[in-house]
Design a protein around this nucleic acid. Structure first.
Lengths: 377, 377
DNA sequence: TTGTAGGCGTTATCAG
DNA sequence: CTGATAACGCCTACAA
């Protein structure tokens, strides 16, 4: 029969090959102690002979859990493909044939980003790495998924895992609505709330406070502007604490923050040029994220403004690229790896008991001021 | 009944809620065209109300494919955790409780690696990123797994995916033996062979040739030593071509290469110190990988040897850390992202037809000489 | 210690 | 267009 040859071998095939029942096959893999050494050997040998690997799908179905932890990010492609041609995910994508020929020349690899730190690793990547690392220590595979907006991908991923961590996004609330309520969830960088989801986030206020204190107290700057839109929890918190901290020092923030976002259109460059033309550049630019700060650095450089002599610039997050910019970026670093690990531990149920009087975790990590040169130090 | 409340909702629950059969529920999600708009709406509404998400396990079981692509690395923990306490994966790990308190202080995060490029991103990470990126474009989730030696983790992962890409390892051959033969596999950086696995690799010889030519022809170095053990396909190929290229220039390689490996004990530092003591340091050190080269840089620096004035050093791979070292590392960069993407496309069946007369893909990518300062430029 | 049988949640087939 | 019903491959009482 062509069956056994072509099909993926199953417990039945192995059982037959080994001359035992399917239960023994199953036991051989999952309950070694409940079976005699002899039959176990026989089963394993048969399995190897047949090239048998238990189907995770079937197992997942049978015992109600997949054993996998998931990590989902929205619009990851958009975020990453920035410098290139952005094409949205398309499952039905035409085959992009591998270039023919013996050796595929560099020019066909479109790998122009020579380890470009502006594109990788970013915040998401470091958190993801922590998540993956912890999962590996826990001996669990990780599923990574990405999808946007109205996409069903979050729900789809939710159906594959025992627990899911999710990066922030404007469309997150909508996505959460169509997620099964039964699966444990960790939300990164999302405002605390009454929902049943765990949180892992950073103490934005504390970080911003330390930064402003440094700029105002140590450097004596008296005209500190904010760069970045109030979009998302992190950025908003940073902006609010920027204002609060300035107020604490008896300073008034600029009327309107400088517009900027990492994705999509903004007016950062024009606004900066405009301010320069009017001789009204702030003494310091506190940016919502490192990516904003790096853009500001570029813009200022294009305008011939010297950093930090004329204008100081600071970031937030502490991504690697900030170490490489000129001048090196003063920033507030998040313990991204630790945050990713925490999420994984929470989902795996290895994060200890939920704190007294709380229904879920809300892990707030302290960031750390990273003083480099762009602040004037 | 407590059933419907606690359990994860299934098609049956939705069907009941919507007053249709389970087939209609399934169709509502998978075959929208084969069902009336009205019932479809009704089903979707019911599903949302119940917080229903289809179980990927059940679907995978039913139609024989999971829709996931996998990427497996051996001993990833060991490779990564280098500077820290290395603890092997242990699924039964004791809970590491999240630190208590309002805000988790930095000191408890053990996140000392301030975006340390020596630890991340490495070769694996960039390939992995390419793999993930391509999967996202294809609309497919990725599962990442890691495990060592006699571990069943490769086979386990194989049971979860429709296709699996695997990083090289000394234990790879053994692991492949207990893998189901039915699932498509891509091997990174492994010697071509008769097995049914696809290959994605780099043209080590071409890269090394260009590098040696530069060192010998452009710089006129006449005493070029190799650093690194002949372990694994890449390193061995590099070593072999190092010798061949030198021979082509009429030079003789040193008797024995300088011992070094990224993991495990080696004698690189002692050997270097020894050579220095004897006044026999080579003029140039061609290292098997960037990580070897970075170690060599450290060692030479400790010995007070100036690079590149006294000894030139080169790497291979082109990881980000090489851009940050002092002096910046001359290296041969692999198009890692492109390699990761290629692997994903092959597994997804979107890499076009297998070349004439071949039974599987063997994609060999051209690397690119990255001239920085450590060679003397 | 080993075998038998039922169930896990979907999809697909085939009637209606 | 909709509804029964039979796989799909594995796990696990329960029985032998």
């Amino acid at each position: 029969m062509t069956d056994a040859a072509s099909r993926r071998p199953t417990v039945y095939d192995v059982a037959q090959e080994a001359g035992v029942s399917i239960a023994s096959v199953s036991f051989a893999f999952r309950r070694p102690e409940r079976i005699s050494e002899a039959t176990r050997e026989r089963v394993l040998a048969a399995a190897r002979r047949l090239g048998y690997a238990p189907s995770a799908a079937a197992r997942g179905l049978a015992n109600g859990r997949t054993g996998i932890l998931g990590l989902h990010a929205f619009d990851l492609m958009l975020e990453r493909a920035e410098p290139r041609d952005v094409s949205p995910p398309r499952p039905d994508a035409r085959p992009t044939p591998l270039p023919a020929g013996d050796i595929i020349p560099w020019s066909l690899t479109d790998d122009e980003t020579l380890a470009d730190p502006r594109a990788f690793p970013l915040y998401v990547d470091e958190v993801q790495r922590g998540f993956a690392l912890e999962c590996w220590m826990l001996g669990r595979p990780v599923v990574l998924s990405s999808g946007s907006d109205s996409d069903v991908s979050v729900a789809d991923t939710a159906g594959r895992v025992d627990g899911l961590a999710i990066f922030p996004s404007p469309v997150l609330p909508a996505a959460l609505l169509r997620m099964p309520a039964t699966i444990p969830t960790v939300l990164f960088s999302v405002a605390p709330g009454d929902d049943p989801h765990h949180r892992v986030r950073v103490d934005n206020a504390g970080g911003m406070r330390g930064l402003i204190d440094h700029l105002v107290h140590d450097h004596g700057y008296d005209d500190v502007a904010f760069v970045g839109r109030q979009e998302g929890f992190d950025n908003t918190q940073r902006f609010l604490e920027y204002r609060a901290s300035l107020a604490r020092w008896g300073q008034r923030p600029r009327e309107e923050p400088i517009d900027g976002t990492v994705r999509g259109p903004h007016r950062m460059v024009e606004q900066l040029a405009d301010l320069q033309a009017r001789g009204a550049l702030p003494r310091a630019l506190v940016c919502a994220t490192d990516q904003h700060a790096l853009m500001a650095l570029d813009a200022l450089s294009a305008l011939g403004v010297r950093v930090p002599e004329q204008v100081a610039v600071t970031g937030f997050d502490g991504i690697l690229a900030g170490r490489l910019s000129v001048p090196a970026l003063t920033s507030v670093r998040q313990p991204m790896e630790a945050m990713g690990r925490a999420a994984a531990r929470i989902l795996a149920g290895k994060a200890g008991p939920v704190p007294e009087g709380q229904s879920r975790f809300d892990a707030v990590f302290a960031p750390r001021l990273l003083i480099r040169h762009s602040c004037g130090c």
